[in-house]
C-alpha cells in the first residue's frame, strides 16, 4: 500500500469523479450522480491494477539489474584476481625452491649448535607452510576466475551428494557433527555438470561444518517438485548469519573467519557455478540457531544460458 501512495496522482481522476458525484448527489438527486459514482469505482479499480502492474515490473527490473551488477562485479574481480594470482605464483615458486636449497645445505653441513639447527629447521618449515598457504589461495583464485564451461550429463544427485557427505564426514574429526540424510527416493536424474556440482556441495558442506562450534547437526536433503526443479538443501545448527552480513555473503573475499581459515571464495564460486547451471541459491538463516542453503537446479537447463565469463 505504501508503494501505491507514491502513485497517488494516478488516483486523482478517480477521486475527482467521486468528488463530482458527491457534489451532484447532494445538490439534486440526479441520475448522473450514480453514473459518476460507478465511473469513480471503475477508475479506482483500473488504476489500482495498473499501478500494481507497474510496481511489479519495476521490482523485476531491480532484481535483474542487481543480478547484472553482481555478475559484472564478479567478472571484474575475477579478471583482476587471476592476473594477480599469476604474478604472485612465480615469486612463490622461487621462495619454495630457495627454502629447499637451504634445507639441502643444512643436511650437508649442519650448524654446530643443535638448538640453532632446530630453530632454523623450524623457521624453514614455517616458510614452506606459508608458501603452501599462499599457493592454495592463488590456485583457488585462478579456479574462480577461469571456471570451465559446464559439461552436462545425466546425474544421480543423491549419489553425488552422498559421496561428498562421506568425504566431509571422514575429515571432520575435531568436533562432533551428526550428518542426517533426507534424500528424496527415486529422485529423477538431473542434466548437469558433476565436477562443478560436487564443488558446490563440498563448499556448502564445509561452511556448514565450520559454522558448528563443537557439536551440532548437518542435515542434507533433496527434493524435487513437479515443475522441473530440484532442490538440494544443506542445513546446519551452527552459528547462523548476522542479518547485516546477508547482502555480502556471495561477494568474493567476504569472510568472517579467522585469517588463514577462510578466503571468502567458497560461496562466490558456488554462486557462479549454480548460475552457469541455470539455477539459484537460497539462504535462510537465524543468528545463533543455524542456517540453510538451498541450491535450486533446473532438471534440464536451457541450453543457451550464458555463463559469467
Amino acid at each position: 500500500m505504501k508503494e501505491h501512495a507514491r502513485y497517488f496522482w494516478a488516483y486523482l481522476p478517480a477521486l475527482g469523479a467521486f468528488g463530482c458525484a458527491v457534489g451532484t448527489l447532494s445538490a439534486d438527486r440526479n441520475l448522473s450522480g450514480i453514473t459518476l459514482v460507478l465511473w469513480g469505482v471503475w477508475s479506482l479499480v483500473v488504476t489500482f491494477f495498473v499501478v500494481r502492474t507497474i510496481l511489479q515490473e519495476r521490482s523485476k527490473d531491480e532484481f535483474t539489474t542487481r543480478q547484472l551488477l553482481q555478475a559484472q562485479k564478479m567478472a571484474t574481480i575475477g579478471e583482476m584476481a587471476s592476473g594477480i594470482a599469476h604474478e604472485v605464483n612465480n615469486p612463490l615458486a622461487v621462495i619454495g625452491r630457495e627454502v629447499e636449497w637451504i634445507q639441502e645445505l643444512l643436511k650437508e653441513s649442519p650448524p654446530p649448535d643443535p638448538q640453532a639447527q632446530r630453530e632454523i629447521q623450524e623457521s624453514l618449515h614455517v616458510i614452506t607452510a606459508q608458501v603452501t598457504r599462499c599457493a592454495d589461495i592463488t590456485h583457488r583464485l585462478l579456479d574462480f576466475a577461469r571456471m570451465n564451461k559446464p559439461v552436462l550429463q545425466w546425474v544421480d544427485l543423491n549419489n553425488l551428494i552422498e559421496e561428498m557427505v562421506r568425504l566431509v564426514e571422514r575429515v571432520t574429526k575435531t568436533k562432533t557433527v551428526t550428518f542426517e540424510r533426507h534424500y528424496h527416493d527415486n529422485l529423477a536424474p538431473v542434466w548437469t555438470d558433476p565436477p562443478l556440482l560436487r564443488q558446490v556441495v563440498l563448499n556448502l558442506l564445509n561452511n556448514a561444518v565450520q559454522a558448528i562450534d563443537r557439536e551440532g547437526t548437518v542435515t542434507v536433503s533433496t527434493r524435487d517438485d513437479a515443475k522441473g526443479w530440484v532442490d538440494i538443501a544443506i542445513a546446519d545448527t551452527g552459528c547462523g548469519i548476522a542479518p547485516h552480513h546477508l547482502p555480502h555473503l556471495f561477494d568474493p573475499f567476504f569472510s568472517t573467519k579467522a585469517p588463514g581459515k577462510g578466503t571468502g571464495l567458497g560461496l562466490a564460486v558456488c554462486q557462479k557455478i549454480v548460475t552457469a547451471l541455470g539455477g539459484l541459491i537460497l539462504v535462510d538463516s537465524k543468528e545463533g540457531c543455524g542456517s540453510q542453503f538451498t541450491v535450486r537446479l533446473p532438471r534440464r537447463p536451457i541450453e543457451t544460458r550464458k555463463t559469467f565469463e
Partner: peptide, 23 residues
C-alpha cells in the same frame, strides 16, 4: 600456475608427459 582442464587436454594431445602445479 593453474590446473586447467583445457590446457591439460592440450598438453596431452601434443604428447606432453605430465603437468605439475606451480609452486
Amino acid at each position: 600456475g593453474h590446473a586447467n582442464v583445457d590446457a591439460a587436454v592440450e598438453i596431452m594431445r601434443l604428447g606432453g608427459y605430465e603437468y605439475l602445479l606451480k609452486p
